[in-house]
Amino acid sequence: MSGIAAIHLVENALLVSIQDDVSDVEIIDLQDALSRRIAEENVRGVVLDISALEIVDTFVGRVIAQLAGISRLLDAETYVVGMRPAVAVTLVELGLYLPETRTALSLTHALSQLRRG
């Protein structure tokens, strides 16, 4: 898992920062690891920091969408934070609107929204 930083527990949320050179295998591993951690630690939310991602393809987009679905089933909200303008444009063009994920400008915003419930 060289491309992915560790999963950190911040307050009552799991924080993951996805690196730019993430591979398809690594992101699948991440999905698996995150699912388990959400269930084990009973967290309120998951924060995916994708500010390092400069390119997003349909695969990564779909995995992010799936992660949101998984965490919702496990009673946690997924926040995608720090999306770059170019990535937002690409996702919209690909038709991936990520309706199930919540979004925030930064980690701080996501955490304050989580605190508010």
Binding site: M83, P85, A88, V92, E93, Y97, T103, L105, H109, A110
Partner: peptide, 12 residues
């Protein structure tokens, strides 16, 4: 609507 969707993805 696409612009609005992109804005939402950015977190605004």
């Amino acid at each position: 609507l696409r612009a609005a969707a992109a804005v939402r993805l950015m977190g605004a």
